[in-house]
Nucleic acid binder design. Structure first.
Lengths: 190, 190
DNA sequence: TTTGTGTTGGGACAAATGTCCTTTTATAAA
DNA sequence: TTTATAAAAGGACATTTGTCCCAACACAAA
């Protein structure tokens, strides 16, 4: 549920210590947006500390949460390659510290640093491979199964993430989430 | 709905013409599986001609179709980076011609051919960016809206893809697909 | 021909889920 | 303290969707 990439973070930390690396640090408070949907940016971000949500909002104001991103997760990199405006919002949930790299420096690193290149590809491969089973499971199984699955993968999920965000992550109504949680409690399943 | 990547195909075609490129060609018939779920392979594939479906099956025999892949689409590459067994099945829908490259040659190309490296990254970025809005839309909107959306993006979808596959792509029961198609016809919406 | 198999189509009913609305609680601001 | 605001909780009802059937049809195999 909250994705992390310690390997990438460790590598970026090394860079940041050196001078002239072109990597900057920034801080955000909860509810601040780092990236808005359908805008153009020139920065790729990597989370140093904290948690964000990555979500799409539609015309009707419905939000659908793609992922919760934790330490070492990258965002804004897809748009370097697709050349499209951002397709999602990134919003801080906790106090947040990020590294940011300009598109130019990011591209230079990609071309000249084989280890960095491989780490970026690996992080993209990971994004693809966890999206697939999640999408599949959410579509094919009832809400109850999805909650039990979350519970198992991430026992403290209700502590850190608001009910509303959990519902938006599961793509269900808040009412349905509450109802199902109650049914599970009644049967001592949770 | 049916994804393509002509840019990558064009580049691979060039390689294939030259000798000693390490690229092989293979043919498959409809319903043949090129990749099974949870197995290990040593080949990355690129579609030269034809259409496949990429799907996950679960314990209960339910299939969920991730994508329909057409010319130039790559598969099997994620496992090079994640080092996990395959997370989905790839099955031919039409007569199919693919190029295949061994992991070793694929890695060599990635390291030594900057253009190839960039094309592979771009193809992965595209996979990430079309998965997001699809997942979001399918979860948040009723079946009817999803069918109308398919209809618009891909008018001939019922000609090429079986009803069952369409239902599995939308993550719904075949019965629900038929019912909704009828309702749309009754209202002359389709 | 018969037999089997896969695809399409739909009736009847049950279960899951969403919408709308109200209430309570906690927390922050005035 | 009061006021405002957001989060959590749940009742009542309508709608959507799935499950379990069965039937018709096409097509290939025997």
């Amino acid at each position: 549920m909250i994705r992390r990439n310690p390997e990438l973070l460790a590598y970026i930390n090394e860079f940041y210590i050196e001078n002239e690396s072109g990597i900057l640090e920034e801080k955000y408070h909860p509810k601040q947006r780092i990236i808005e949907q359908n805008r153009r940016y020139n920065w790729v971000y990597i989370i140093k500390e904290g948690i964000t949500k990555c979500y799409l909002s539609d015309e009707n104001g419905k939000d659908f949460i793609q992922e919760f991103l934790g330490e070492g997760m990258e965002f804004g990199e897809i748009e370097v390659f697709s050349c499209n405006p951002s397709f999602c919002c990134i919003e801080a949930i906790t106090e947040l510290v990020v590294y940011k790299i300009s598109y130019i420096d990011f591209n230079t690193l990609l071309e000249n640093d084989k280890k960095f290149n491989r780490l970026v590809i690996k992080s993209m491969a990971a994004k693809i491979s966890y999206k697939a089973p999640r999408h599949s499971y959410q579509q094919s199984y009832p809400i109850e199964d999805n909650i039990l699955r979350l519970q198992q993968l991430f026992p403290e999920f209700t502590k850190i993430i608001s009910k509303n965000d959990i519902a938006n992550y599961l793509g269900i109504a808040l009412r349905s989430l509450n109802r199902t949680l109650n049914q599970l409690k009644d049967r001592n399943k949770i």
